[in-house]
Structures are given as structure tokens and as C-alpha cells.
Design a protein around this nucleic acid. Structure first.
Length: 427
RNA sequence: GGAGGGAUGGCCGAGUGGACGAAGGCGGCGGUCUUGAAAACCGCUGUGGGCUCUGUCCCACCGGGGGUUCGAAUCCCUCUCCCUCCGCCA
């Protein structure tokens, strides 16, 4: 959510931001119009309320019955006027809030302008694209051959875009989660185990609602939404709180499954485990002072890169252009890992500084050390790594000519010392 | 799922429908005193919004929402959460 004052004081800045994001800027005028209406009504209503409060106090002191009755009668009318104004105010207010809620964050000025993902900028590549003296297989062949992935039975249970991990595959998933959480803990993040179902208000606070309703699962009878990312509960966790400046920054990491309807992407990436309705992810999240959020973004990016480096995977750092930037983000780096079998770069991580956008929606503030009014803080989020794609990269990069897969060294302690996954090792 | 009891400022805790944004205490901040600290004493100490925007200004907020009334922390309805008991249950 953007500050309404930004629209009043610098509407061109907002228009320009919308244009860069390939959106129509006319919405700004609609916001300004509603804002003007809103304030006009407030002034009328509050003037009447002031009068009502004043006269009501007089009534308490008025002895003369006739005078008293006259005043009561007058205030009856005032009450009706107030009720009518407040009803209009409610609808204007709601329209304004609804409108503001659909407007994305202002891109950081350092973000390159571009129409869509084709204009993202590759900042650097770390590691070489590995060469094989055999034809590397895609994971959807490696998995079933090893007996660690079962697509048919996943479909039997839940339909398309679901799969079963089995034996060493299931253990590999668990190992990746545990290892990443441990790594992030060493990097200074506090581990959180949040609810996987949250209230609507929480999904709104992080920015997934109202815009991405079609991508979310929710309970038909209760006010429960299945988290599409740990970012949602990690934002909502501190909703309506005021931190002392000394309590910042806060670093959190959390494993959650993520549930997404993926309605928009029907037909895309249907093979393998790249895109599913349910997947695991380890997330990093930082609450910080506004002045320090740039630095926090660099830390978080470095921390995410470390996971790929320690897994020994080749990756590249991509800066998203304005046209590909997420709704809440001001600036985002994606990490893409090379998958030799699939023959593509896979987005495994997305690290963003959202500024005060989510903090304003969630009403999360801090009190400056010298005292004074609470201010909105800044939040950042980044995937520690999306698990399925990390697993794809591990399987495809570490595969051997005989079809077995070497377990990356850092994961071995989490897999009982297992060094190579072979069909025999599945059980 | 059933029965009952609760929810008041950072915390504890009063509150009769009429000067209550809310007594009192604790905590915090500032000051007096002191070589320093403590104690004591004095003062200050919520958030958001509006305007003729630094003014002894106005409005709203006593878990959320709605209602009654000239006027609601106080009365009514409803929802949420917490506590006690019963039932069910991984």
C-alpha cells in the first residue's frame, strides 16, 4: 500500500511508476478524486459531531424542560445528518482503500526499465555450465528411474501438478529443508514455524490479496487461507505492532509448504516437479530501519547465494526490470540455477526489498530511538530456495552416466551419510 | 459442540449513561536534591484522522462490528480471543 500523501504531494511520481510497470496511470486521478471527496465529507461530518458533543453537554446542565426538549429535538436532526454523511464516507473510504490496495509499489530508481522478463538484466554468473560426456537427463526421467519420484501416483491422489517423493527422494527433500534452515540460522536468522493457514487479513497485509485471489486456496467455510509462501505469515506475525528501534533489525527464516492454484499458468511447465500446487520453500525475512534496508538486501542476496554456492551449483544473478517486478517489490534480484537435463535456467530464489509497502498494509512500525512518532519500517523477503527447483538442479547436475546421483557434500550429514543415490539406495 | 466467566492506556487496575481519553498504581522520560547512585519530591508520558495545520483547535478510538440515546467505556445484539467445566478427538 502506498501512502495517500504521496498521491497528494507528488502524483507524477506515482504516474511515472505505473507507466514503468506497464500500467495505466489514470488510476491516480481516481485516487485523488476519492481522496478529495473523503476529506470534504469528513469536514462536514466532524463539524456536526463537534456541535452535537457541545450541545449534548449543555443538555445535561439545562434545567428548563422546554429549552431542554428543544435542544434534544435539534440534536435528533443532527444525528440523522451525521448518519447520512458517515454512510457516504464509509463507501468513499472503502472505494479509496480498494483502489489503493490494487496499486503496486514504486520501483526503486535503480531498477532498469523494461517491458517484461525478456528485459531483465543478468548481473553475473557464478560457476561454469558443466559439461558431461553423456547426455544429461531431465529430472522427470532421473527421478522415476531411481524410484524416488512417482508422478502417476501423485496424480492418482490429487490430480495434475502433484507428485510423490519416495525413499531417498523424500529424504533429499527433508535434508534440503533442514540444511537450509541450519545455514540461515548461522547467517543470523531466527527460525520460525508458523501456521500454514492464516486469516484473510494476513494475506492482505503481505499484498497477495486482493490482487492474486485466483492463485490462492482458501477454506470454503472458515476464514482460512493456505499460505502461498512463508512471506505471508512472516509479515502478518508482527501486524499492528510497534518495535523499539533497538529491537531492529529482526531476521527470520521459516520452512513452509506453499500452496498455489497456478490457474494463470495452465499448460506451462506441466512436466516434472518444476511447478506444482504444493511445494516446499525455506524463506528469509527481515524487518529493518528504512535507512538500512538497502544494506539488508545485499546481505539477503549474499545469504541466498551462499546456499547455491555450498550446493556447488552454477547460478546467475538477475536483476528484474520494472515490467517484471512483483506487486509489492521495489527492487528484486532473482537467482537462477542451471539445470543441464532440462536445459534451462531455473528461478530458485527471489530476493526483494519491499520498503514500507507491506509494513503500511500490515501496520508495522517502530519508535525512533530518540522518541517521537512511530514510523513504518521496511521489510525484505527472499527465498532461501524453492525446494523443487533446487532438487531439480541437484539431480540434474549431480547425475552420473550410470543413472545414479551423487549427494552434494553438505547434504550428506542430513541423509545419514549417504553419498550416492542409486536404485538400490531408495529404500 | 454445550454451560459459565472475562477482554479498559507499555503493564496492573478503578469506572454511577452526562466535563471520561478515562481515577490510582507500576514502568518509562525529564527535573529538584546528591560527589555519584538510590530514596524522596515535582512534572511529563497513547494512536490515528481533519482543519483556518505548533493550536489551552476539532473528530474518532476502552477486544472487532452493529444498535439504542440529545449524549455510551457504561445499556442491547453479534463476532473474535482468553479462562473454568462437560463432550468429542490426532
Amino acid at each position: 500500500m502506498l501512502d495517500i500523501r504521496l498521491f497528494r504531494e507528488n502524483p507524477d511520481l506515482v504516474r511515472e511508476a505505473l507507466r514503468k510497470r506497464q500500467m495505466r496511470p489514470q488510476i491516480v486521478d481516481k485516487v485523488l478524486e476519492l481522496d478529495a471527496q473523503r476529506r470534504e465529507i469528513i469536514q462536514k461530518s466532524e463539524a456536526l459531531k463537534a456541535e452535537r458533543n457541545r450541545v449534548s453537554k449543555e443538555i445535561g446542565r439545562t434545567k428548563d424542560p422546554a429549552e431542554r426538549e428543544a435542544k434534544i429535538e435539534a440534536m435528533r436532526k443532527v444525528r440523522e445528518q451525521i448518519a447520512a454523511l458517515d454512510e457516504t464516507l464509509r463507501s468513499v473510504d472503502e472505494a479509496l482503500r480498494d483502489l489503493l490496495a490494487t496499486i503496486p509499489n514504486i520501483p526503486d530508481e535503480r531498477v532498469p526499465e523494461g517491458r517484461d522478463e525478456s528485459e531483465n538484466v543478468i548481473l553475473r554468473q557464478v560457476g561454469e555450465i558443466p559439461q558431461y560426456d553423456f547426455e544429461p537427463l531431465p529430472h522427470w526421467e532421473i527421478g522415476p528411474r531411481l524410484g524416488i519420484m512417482d508422478f502417476e501416483r501423485g496424480v492418482k491422489l490429487s490430480g495434475s501438478r502433484f507428485y510423490i517423493l519416495r525413499g531417498a527422494g523424500a529424504r533429499l527433500e527433508r535434508a534440503l529443508i533442514a540444511w537450509m534452515l541450519d545455514l540461515h540460522r548461522q547467517q543470523g536468522y531466527t527460525e520460525i514455524y508458523p501456521p500454514f493457514m492464516v486469516k484473510e487479513q494476513v494475506v492482505f497485509a503481505s499484498g497477495q490479496l486482493p490482487k492474486f485471489r485466483d492463485n490462492l486456496y482458501h477454506d470454503a467455510e472458515e476464514d482460512f487461507w493456505w499460505v502461498p509462501t512463508a512471506e505471508v505469515p512472516l509479515t502478518g506475525m508482527h501486524m499492528d505492532e510497534i518495535f523499539d528501534e533497538a529491537e531492529l533489525p529482526r531476521h527470520y527464516t521459516a520452512y513452509t509448504p506453499c500452496f498455489r492454484r497456478e490457474k494463470m499458468s495452465a499448460g506451462r511447465d506441466v512436466r516434472g516437479i518444476k511447478r506444482g500446487h504444493q511445494f516446499d520453500k525455506v524463506e528469509m525475512y527481515i524487518y529493518t530501519l528504512p535507512e538500512e534496508s538497502d544494506r539488508a538486501l545485499e546481505k539477503m542476496l549474499a545469504d541466498a547465494e551462499q546456499t547455491l554456492a555450498e550446493l556447488g551449483l552454477t547460478y546467475r544473478v538477475v536483476q528484474l526490470c520494472t515490467g517484471d517486478l512483483g506487486f509489492a517489490a521495489r527492487i528484486t534480484y532473482d537467482l537462477e540455477v542451471w539445470a543441464p537435463g532440462s536445459g534451462e535456467w531455473l528461478e530458485v530464489s527471489s530476493v526483494s526489498n519491499v520498503g514500507d509497502f507491506q509494513a503500511r498494509r500490515a501496520n508495522i512500525r517502530y519508535r525512533p530511538a530518540g522518541g517521537g512518532k512511530p514510523r513504518f519500517l521496511h521489510t525484505l523477503n527472499g527465498s532461501g530456495l524453492g525446494l523443487p527447483r533446487t532438487m531439480i538442479a541437484v539431480l540434474e547436475n549431480y547425475q552420473q552416466a550410470d543413472g545414479s546421483v551423487v549427494v552434494p557434500e553438505v547434504l550428506r550429514p542430513y541423509m545419514g551419510g549417504l553419498e550416492v543415490i542409486t536404485p538400490e539406495e531408495v529404500a
